Amino acid sequence: MHADVACDLPMLYHRTEDHYFAATCSLHRRHNACINAYLTDEALDPFNLLFIRVGSGPMGDAVAAMLDVIRGTTLDIRVVIHEEKVEGLRDVLTELGFQAAEVTTAMVLEQSHLVPPTSDSAVQISLTQHLDDWAAPLGNAFSMLPEGLARYQARHERALEAGEALYHFTLSSEGQVRSSLTLSMCDGEARLNDVGTLMDSRGRGYATQLIQAALRHATSLGAERCFLEASTQGLPLYRTLRFTRLFDYQSFVRGPLAAPSSEGHFDLPAILES
C-alpha cells in the first residue's frame, strides 16, 4: 500500500530510513518519531556500533533518553543529526567526547523523472540473494576490513531470511562483479543504499547503469519515489540521475571508551529492547 501522498517528503524519507536500518541491525529502539537508535552487532565487540539518527520531527523528551543511552555505554557511537537539530545538540555531544564527521545529503527522485536508461550490452545486471558477489565491491569501495565486511553481509543475509523487502543488485563486466547496491521497499516507497563500485572500475558508468536498473525494478514494484543518503562524492552522480536534495545530515562520532566500573553502567541491549 502506498503512503498517503499528502505526507511530506522528509517524513517519508525517515520512514524508509528507519525500515532499512531496523532490518539490517541487530537491535533497534524507536525513542520517538524523531530519534531512533540501532545496535549493529549485539555482543560482537569490536564490530558492534551504536548508531543513532535524529530526524526532522520534534525531539521532545526522547533527547534525554538518547543521552542516557550514550552515557551508559562504552561502545563506538555514531550520531547522525538533521541539519536543523545540530546546534541544539552540538555542545552536549562535544562534552561527551564526540567530534564532527562527514556531512551527507538526503535526496529524493520522483520515479516519473527517471533518466532514460543507459544501454551497454557488455555488462550484466543481476538481482541476487547470494550475497558473496554483492559484498565484494562494497568492501573495496568503502575500504572495509574482511571480518567487518563478513559481518555486514551476514546482517543482510539475516534480513533476507526474515523476509525483509531488500533487493541486492550486482553489475558484472568481463566476468567480474564491478558494482553493487541494495534497494529496499517500505510501504510503497523505495530507497537505495550500499552503492559501491570497485575503485579501479570507476568512471565507466557502472554505478549509473546499476542504479537505473534498480530504479526500474522499484517502479515495477509500484514505487513512485526513491530516497537515498548521498555522500559529498556521490552528489554529482545522483544529481545527474535527477535526485533532488531534501536536507543535510551532520554526523558526530565517538570511539569506544575504556570500560568503567560496573556502577552506573547500563546493559545496552536491554535498554534498546525496553
Score class of each variant (00 low, 15 high):
residue 1 M to T: 05
residue 5 V to K: 13
residue 5 V to P: 15
residue 8 D to Y: 03
residue 11 M to P: 05
residue 12 L to V: 10
residue 14 H to Q: 15
residue 14 H to N: 11
residue 14 H to T: 08
residue 16 T to H: 01
residue 17 E to R: 14
residue 18 D to T: 13
residue 18 D to S: 07
residue 20 Y to T: 06
residue 26 S to R: 09
residue 28 H to E: 03
residue 29 R to F: 06
residue 30 R to G: 00
residue 30 R to D: 00
residue 31 H to F: 15
residue 33 A to H: 08
residue 35 I to R: 01
residue 40 T to R: 06
residue 42 E to N: 13
residue 43 A to C: 02
residue 43 A to H: 03
residue 44 L to E: 13
residue 44 L to V: 14
residue 45 D to W: 05
residue 46 P to R: 03
residue 47 F to H: 12
residue 47 F to E: 03
residue 52 I to W: 01
residue 55 G to N: 14
residue 55 G to A: 11
residue 57 G to E: 10
residue 60 G to L: 14
residue 61 D to P: 14
residue 62 A to M: 10
residue 62 A to Y: 12
residue 66 M to T: 10
residue 66 M to V: 08
residue 68 D to R: 15
residue 76 D to T: 11
residue 77 I to Y: 02
residue 77 I to R: 10
residue 81 I to H: 06
residue 85 K to G: 06
residue 88 G to T: 10
residue 88 G to Q: 08
residue 88 G to P: 13
residue 90 R to H: 04
residue 94 T to W: 04
residue 95 E to R: 14
residue 97 G to E: 11
residue 99 Q to P: 04
residue 99 Q to T: 04
residue 101 A to S: 12
residue 102 E to Y: 12
residue 102 E to G: 09
residue 103 V to H: 07
residue 104 T to N: 04
residue 107 M to D: 05
residue 108 V to N: 08
residue 108 V to A: 04
residue 108 V to Q: 06
residue 111 Q to C: 14
residue 112 S to W: 02
residue 114 L to W: 01
residue 115 V to Y: 09
residue 117 P to N: 08
residue 119 S to E: 07
residue 120 D to I: 11
residue 124 Q to V: 07
residue 127 L to D: 00
residue 128 T to E: 06
residue 130 H to A: 04
residue 131 L to H: 03
residue 132 D to A: 12
residue 133 D to L: 14
residue 134 W to R: 09
residue 134 W to M: 08
residue 135 A to I: 02
residue 139 G to F: 05
residue 140 N to T: 08
residue 144 M to F: 13
residue 148 G to I: 01
residue 148 G to Y: 13
residue 149 L to S: 01
residue 149 L to R: 14
residue 151 R to N: 00
residue 154 A to L: 11
residue 158 R to P: 05
residue 164 E to T: 09
residue 168 H to V: 02
residue 168 H to N: 09
residue 169 F to I: 08
residue 169 F to M: 14
residue 170 T to D: 03
residue 171 L to H: 08
residue 172 S to Y: 01
residue 173 S to V: 11
residue 175 G to W: 00
residue 178 R to W: 03
residue 180 S to E: 06
residue 183 L to V: 04
residue 185 M to N: 03
residue 187 D to R: 12
residue 191 R to I: 03
residue 192 L to M: 15
residue 192 L to W: 05
residue 192 L to C: 08
residue 194 D to M: 15
residue 196 G to N: 06
residue 198 L to P: 06
residue 200 D to P: 10
residue 201 S to W: 10
residue 202 R to S: 02
residue 202 R to A: 02
residue 205 G to N: 12
residue 205 G to R: 08
residue 212 Q to L: 11
residue 214 A to V: 05
residue 215 L to R: 10
residue 217 H to N: 01
residue 218 A to Y: 01
residue 219 T to A: 06
residue 221 L to G: 00
residue 222 G to L: 09
residue 224 E to P: 04
residue 225 R to D: 02
residue 232 T to Q: 11
residue 235 L to K: 11
residue 239 R to Q: 09
residue 240 T to R: 13
residue 242 R to A: 03
residue 243 F to C: 10
residue 244 T to P: 04
residue 248 D to Q: 15
residue 248 D to I: 10
residue 257 L to P: 14
residue 258 A to T: 05
residue 259 A to I: 12
residue 261 S to F: 09
residue 261 S to E: 08
residue 262 S to W: 08
residue 264 G to F: 11
residue 265 H to T: 07
residue 266 F to E: 12
residue 267 D to L: 11
residue 267 D to G: 03
residue 267 D to P: 07
residue 267 D to W: 14
residue 268 L to Y: 05
residue 268 L to D: 04
residue 272 L to I: 05
residue 274 S to M: 09
